[in-house]
Amino acid sequence: MEIKSFIRENKSILIFLIAAVAVSIVLATFVSPFASSSPDGLEKVAEDKGFGKKAEEKEPAWRNSPVPDYVVGGEKNEDKKWATGLAGFIGVLITIAVTLMVCLIVRGIRAFSREKSPVE
């Protein structure tokens, strides 16, 4: 019952949120495989001006990215549309999850510090 009334009261915002999530998932999953694969602004400048190799020579500081370069399964799937689409889909879910986690942690700390202080 409670869920039903919650949905009724917040119908408009829920529709908006669902639509926005749907748009994001469609873009990341089904549109991103067809995005331009040319180097972006900084990469192109680095190539043209000859300092792009500085990044290639350098070992990345963090080597545990599960989905490097937005391709599931690594370099061998580079040309596969599904590997990019799946990476986008996963990315949208991870981004939402991390945002909610950060918000809940901040709220948790807030509640904790309120409990400790005598002032309302």
Binding site: V21, V23, S38, P39, V98
Partner: peptide, 21 residues
Amino acid sequence: ITAAFIFAAQMLNFPVAGGTS
């Protein structure tokens, strides 16, 4: 949802002049 949308939209490289996106 804003974070998710920005993540998704950032994946969509569009071509600009001269082999650059």
